[in-house]
Design a protein around this nucleic acid. Structure first.
Length: 259
DNA sequence: ATGGTAGACCTTCTA
């Protein structure tokens, strides 16, 4: 089972590029982030034509996540538990039906910049809520994949120019500590487990020639329960997609499970 | 030290 995650930066502005990649890469499951539209504006029919079942948790203008699967999506959950009054659409979870069901979550963790605004505490609070929910999911002792745009640079080796990110919400010690707290519940970073070579990035900013200078960071992750690690067969970062016409600033990250 | 790009949008916010 091939499970992809991709922050597409507007699914409608990017639809041609997204469909081109889907036809080439043929993921069984895909988690999209930053779809930037409400549910009714999501191009559901285009994905159904490719054979996918579709679940969407959209939002006007900003954020929004989706889950696509060749087999049915069951037990769909939209949003984390304990939503606040101004909840943003950043979490969508479902069980991928099959002989070995796999629970998958599409995650768009808050960016958190600028750090001297309410955005940073919102990020840390959201990470706390994700961690509490992940603890409950791990208690189920089933194959679980938490994947998406975490907006976290886990270590200096995950940035080409780590000094550029000092003080940034993606790399602050508090952010990295919160990410470790999540992982230390018993989750495994699929990229480190299956490959781990440094210099592998999933995001290059549109600005200041970041792509041309390879000023990249690894912020799109897949965290696996022990039962999912047992199935892990490999990972791949589709770096070349960043060089396509009208690219997203993120590229697809794919994990392969022996299911 | 600064500014650079992209997308959706109640020309400004978010990243």
């Amino acid at each position: 089972m091939r499970i992809a995650t991709w922050n597409v930066n507007s699914v409608n502005a990017r639809l041609e590029t997204v469909l081109k990649w889907f036809e080439a890469a043929q993921p069984d499951v895909a988690c999209l982030q930053e779809i930037k539209c409400v549910d009714e504006k999501f191009p559901t029919e285009a994905f159904e034509r490719l054979g996918y079942n579709v679940a969407v948790h959209g939002q006007k203008s900003y954020n929004g996540v989706a889950l696509l699967s060749k087999t049915p999506l069951e037990d769909v959950r939209r949003g984390l538990p304990d939503p606040g009054a101004e909840e943003q659409s950043r979490y969508l979870e479902a069980v991928i039906a099959g002989p070995m069901p796999v629970r998958v979550a599409s995650i768009y963790l808050p960016n958190g910049n600028p750090v001297d605004t309410e955005k940073y505490p919102y990020k840390l609070d959201w990470m706390g809520r994700l961690t509490r929910h992940a603890r409950d999911l791990l208690a189920l002792e089933e194959p679980l994949v938490l994947t998406g745009d975490f907006n976290v640079i886990p270590e200096a080796r995950d940035a080409e120019f780590p000094a550029n990110w000092e003080g940034d919400a993606l790399f602050r010690p508090q952010t990295r500590e919160a990410f470790r707290t999540l992982k230390y519940l018993g989750l495994t970073d699929a990229y480190l487990e299956a490959d781990g070579a440094p210099g592998a990035y999933t995001f290059w900013d549109y600005q200041a020639g970041a792509w041309q200078r390879n000023n990249g960071i690894r912020i799109d992750h897949a965290l696996l329960s022990p039962q999912a690690v047992d199935l892990l067969a490999g990972v791949s970062i589709h770096r070349d997609v960043r060089g396509w016409d009208k690219p997203s600033d993120h590229v697809p990250f794919v994990i392969e499970l022996d299911v």
